[in-house]
Design a protein around this nucleic acid. Structure first.
Length: 812
RNA sequence: GGUCGAGUGGUGGAACUGGCAGACACGUGGGACUCAAAAUCCCAUGCUAGCAAUAGUGUGAGGGUUCAACUCCCUCCUCGACCACCA
């Protein structure tokens, strides 16, 4: 009588035991075992509950954690909450309740969900970025950055919603309308805290060589950092003492320049504004206004038409000596280079389009392939590649690279410019004019200026209030809370005011992996003993969307902590992988508005935890996107039910000794499951179990082999494995504390196997070979084949290849 | 425009380091059980021809290297992700 698979009978039972026995908690203290720190991106506890994507990723990594533990590693698999964030604040304003309460409720329900999945997180290490005992240290690290001169205040433009009277993050602005209220946002300059991440740009780039990230992730970060060598060259403005500094990355094309374009809001333009001839002034001013209006409307600059206006002023190219008209144009970005660009239409497509539109000349100075010097008269002909330089005075005959070097030397000798490395990465705007974030621990004193809050006064706690309205001035809502804002200067004791800006949600997540190492420490952010033991993170699993922001930010913070001598390693994460996403049916993103959101709860209710988890792993490869399909979960459901019954039934009918074929089959399964999990090939690991079942479900097993099968099952179907182990087999709790079987390599080498024989590239027969067969013996077996109507021995063989244990290839 | 990546049955996807393409699953067709249905079980299932054994053909297209190519090289096409008026 075989047991029916009914997950409700035992899944909850084992979870209760795992978590009440603190099965995974505190197990991973310092010890002599090799450590393995497995990190997953912690969730933002949002109202609607956990996304199925979280369930998938955490389940996959749970299999890794369980396998590594069984293999004798001291595994840390922690979880926590990235709890500060705008959605909660917005929701809190709407329902007029403090975000603390809402966050705690959300965390409560997330925790319940995660536990109901039977994930083997170490709950004793749980962190919450919005908890004062956590953000105390986030503030402390901020003060370290401040002391090091890496945090400064600067005027920065922000998106401002005039209706809500708040600054909004880019994510909140949809088609230049404020997401919350639909009002058009404005740009406003506000004094903001900024972190000097650019000071670390070079190291963030170079040290990517030290870590094991996917190539795509490295490329993404390198691109984002965007390191380039620029040549800033001063041109004399005609008829004045002013100079105009243009920047270019292609100084070899200087002699092809025919105009200069500057950005409408550049400093340069302000300087030369008064020199614009009277007849042109009005037109230029009109144009600038127009561009600003357009810029507000357009979300995508790329689509805007390229326009420009001639200022009436000329400058002299100090390399070529040419007289160039100065134009103002909408496509020049102030933030790139000096905000002034030299136009070389023959060798830049955009310059060519601009030149054609406004009738500016095109001069070719770089040879094409085979010395092509033909005139350029269409966009397709624009030659952007490097080549030999001609028509270029003192650069003639040089290669592009040679010309670059020569120009670089020239401008430095003549003191008319400089060679400078610039980055696309800009300093990190770190202030938010919002309530629900870590208060920036700075006090503004009328006599002492900015004074950091003394360490002993940390944390600067967020005041808990029932409601908080936005301010008239655009300051954070904290500015209205008088009790909180007004304080004494720690230096002179006079009346002073607190900084009312808070930190962005990226702050807490920039160092949480360190806090996990020592989450209860109230003396330090992490003890050196703990971080030296656990760091680096051996594997960091997460989404692609966090590669350029979160991952880069946390690498930056880590390097600062390293420079301060507070951590041992230069890089926090030894390896990183990127998961695919779970999409709704039809390959679209799951979203509330489409009503296609699948949560784990209903799946667990219907199929149980092991089936849900196994299905999420089986759907597709780890790194690929997978489309949700309600139908195909049935296949996994069928399998798991059969498999459970199989293990139970076989246990009742076990024999003295299983035969060799069974032993080899189990050994293969063991090897497949182990290697696949370690390689993150969870889909084929599950397929391995299915294949094993299909082949061996009717074979006889002895008890040792059945136990081995249960052990192999444990990382992938943890509840079933525990139930079989304890209830069916009567073994000691818990299977997850057992040792993983060691692969017997001898069993994996097959003694007698059938291999194909290819004749002229086509499979024409099969022969049995054994390990001991010599090539001559194989040859004999092949020659006796009679697949072509006559024995092969009667046909002349040109070539004979035997790949041991694989294939025989014969050419006639 | 840039960067990274991907094209394999009706579908999701397997295939070690170049060694029997299509594992595993879904779906579909047929059968068993049932008064019937659901569930379950069994058989078949890349395509073409054939009752069949079998033969031919087949991994986006075309070429190349090799005894042997989904895999390596060249040319082209298509799709996706991220970034982007980056000079």
């Amino acid at each position: 009588m075989s047991k029916q698979y009914n997950p409700k009978d035992f899944e909850k039972k084992w979870q209760d035991k795992w978590f009440s026995d603190l099965q995974y908690e505190g197990k991973d203290g310092l010890n002599d075992k090799p450590k393995y720190y497995l990190l997953v991106e912690f969730p933002y506890p949002s109202g609607p509950g956990m996304h199925i994507g979280h369930t998938r990723n955490y389940s996959m990594m749970d299999a890794v954690a369980r396998l590594r533990r069984m293999k004798g590693f001291n595994v840390m698999y922690p979880i926590g909450w990235d709890a500060f964030g705008l959605p909660t604040e917005n929701y809190a304003i709407k329902v007029k309740r403090p975000p603390q309460e809402i966050t705690n409720e959300n965390i409560e329900s997330f925790r319940k969900q995660l536990k109901s999945l039977g994930l083997s997180f170490d709950w004793s290490r749980e962190v919450n970025t919005s908890d004062p005992s956590y953000y105390r240290w986030t503030q402390w690290i901020f003060l370290k950055l401040y002391e090091k001169g890496l945090a400064y205040k600067s005027e920065m433009p922000i998106n401002w919603c005039p209706k809500c009277r708040v600054g909004c993050a880019n994510e909140e602005v949809i088609d230049s309308l404020h997401e919350r209220c639909g009002t058009a946002v404005e740009k406003r300059n506000i004094s903001q805290w900024v972190l000097k991440i650019t000071e670390y740009a070079d190291r963030l780039d170079e040290d990517l060589d030290l870590v094991d990230y996917p190539d795509s992730a490295k490329a993404l970060q390198r691109n984002w950092i965007g390191k380039k060598v620029w040549y800033d060259i001063q041109y004399k403005v005609e008829g004045s003492d002013e100079t105009l500094t243009i920047s270019t990355t292609r100084p070899d094309t200087q002699f092809g320049s025919t105009f200069v374009v500057i950005s409408p809001d550049s400093e340069v333009l302000k300087k030369i504004m008064n020199q614009i001839p009277k007849d042109r002034k009005k037109e230029v001013e009109e144009y600038i206004k127009e561009v600003k209006r357009e810029a507000l409307k357009k979300e995508e600059y790329g689509d805007a038409e390229k326009t420009g206006v001639f200022t009436g002023i000329y400058c002299i190219n100090s390399i070529s000596g040419s007289r160039l008209p100065i134009w103002v144009a909408n496509f020049v970005l102030t933030t790139v280079g000096t905000g002034a660009v030299v136009g070389v239409p023959a060798h830049d497509r955009r310059d060519f389009q601009f030149a054609t539109k406004y009738g500016l000349p095109v001069v070719r100075v770089i040879e094409g392939l085979n010395g092509d010097r033909a005139d350029i008269f269409s966009v397709e002909m624009v030659y952007e590649e490097e080549g030999n330089v001609f028509n270029s005075g003192f650069l003639d005959g040089l290669s592009s690279l040679g010309a670059e070097v020569k120009v670089g030397k020239f401008i430095e000798e003549q003191k008319i410019g400089r060679v400078i490395t610039r980055y696309h990465l800009h300093d990190w705007v770190f202030s938010r004019q919002h309530y629900w974030g870590e208060p920036i621990p700075i006090i503004h004193c009328p006599s002492c200026g900015m004074v950091p809050v003394p360490e002993s006064d940390l944390p600067v706690k967020l005041p808990v209030v029932q409601s908080y309205e936005p301010t008239e001035t655009g300051e954070s809502p904290l500015a209205n809370i008088q009790d909180w804002v007004n304080t004494k200067c720690p230096k002179c004791g006079e009346d002073a005011k607190r900084e009312t800006d808070t930190m962005p949600n990226w702050a807490g997540s920039s160092w949480y992996y360190l806090r996990y190492c020592d989450s209860k420490n109230d003396k330090e952010f992490v003890s050196r003993e703990q971080s030296d033991y656990w760091m680096q993170v051996d594997h960091y699993e997460g989404g692609q969307e966090h590669i350029t922001l979160h991952l880069l930010y946390s690498r930056f913070w880590h390097k600062v902590l390293y420079d301060l001598g507070l951590v041992r390693d230069v890089e926090p994460y030894k390896a990183r992988s990127i998961h695919g996403n779970v999409l709704g049916e039809g390959g679209v993103k799951m979203s509330k508005s489409l009503g296609n959101v699948i949560g784990p709860d209903e799946l667990i209710a219907e199929y149980g935890v092991d089936v849900t988890r196994a299905y999420l792993m089986f759907m597709g490869p780890y790194e690929g996107n997978v489309e949700w399909s309600t139908r195909t979960i049935q296949g996994v459901n069928r399998f798991v039910a059969k498999y459970y019954t199989f293990l139970n039934t076989k246990w009742e009918k076990r024999v003295e000794k299983s035969d060799m074929e069974v032993k080899v089959g189990i050994e293969r399964l063991l090897s497949k499951v182990e290697n696949n999990i370690l390689d993150f090939k969870f889909n084929t690991a599950i397929a391995g179990l299915m294949e094993f079942y299909n082949t061996f479900s009717i074979s006889s097993f002895d008890s040792k082999d059945l136990e081995k099968i249960a052990l192999i099952t444990a990382p992938l179907l943890p509840h079933i494995a525990e139930e079989i182990w304890c209830s069916t087999m009567g073994k000691e709790y818990s299977i997850h504390n057992e040792n993983w079987p060691i692969i017997d390599e001898k069993l994996l080498i097959e003694r007698n196997i059938e291999i194909p024989v290819q004749i002229n590239g086509k499979v024409r027969g099969k022969i049995m070979v054994s390990e001991s067969d010599t090539e001559d013996q194989i040859r004999e077996k092949v020659l006796s084949l009679n697949t072509l109507g006559q024995p092969l021995s009667e046909i002349q063989i040109k070539k004979f290849i035997y790949v041991p244990q694989r294939i025989v290839s014969v050419t006639l």
